[in-house]
Each structure stands twice: as C-alpha cells, then as structure tokens.
C-alpha cells in the first residue's frame, strides 16, 4: 500500500491509510493467507476493519 512498516499501527485502517481500498484489502488478505497458511471466510474478510481486528482474527485461526 506504499506505507512504511513503522507507520502501521494496530489502529491503522482504510480510514487512516488512504491507499487501503477494497482492492488493496483483497491483496492484503491473500498475502496474509499465504504467509500464515490460513484461510478466512467471506464473513471474516468483511469483518476485518483495521489491523487490530486482523490480528485478533488471525489469533483465532488454526495455522497449517
């Protein structure tokens, strides 16, 4: 998304990061799924509103 790692916080969200649109959201989900070996459901994906909710959801997923 063109954002430096140190600028990302738990409260980063589409509201605070301008480039975080629906397409970037999809790319983010795909990258996280690949990196952590997990699979989100369609409802999971829409429930992810910011970095914090992504981390929380990831914590509830059994990795492979």
């Amino acid at each position: 998304m063109g954002v430096a790692a140190h600028e990302v916080t738990e409260t980063s969200s589409p509201d605070t990061i301008e480039s975080w649109d629906s397409l970037q959201h999809m790319k983010l989900i795909l990258a996280v799924e690949e990196a952590f070996g997990v699979q989100f459901s369609d409802r999971d994906i829409v429930s992810i509103k910011d970095v914090q909710s992504l981390i929380a959801l990831l914590g509830r997923k059994p990795g492979t």
Binding site: S22, M26, D42, I45, V46
Partner: peptide
C-alpha cells in the same frame, strides 16, 4: 475462489 467472486468479482484464485 468464491469468496472474492462475491466480495470483489474476482473469480480466480491466486
């Protein structure tokens, strides 16, 4: 990938 078909009209998986 049916999830992204419904969410973003992206039918194909990675």
């Amino acid at each position: 990938d049916d999830r992204f078909w419904h969410l973003a009209r992206a039918p194909y998986s990675r």
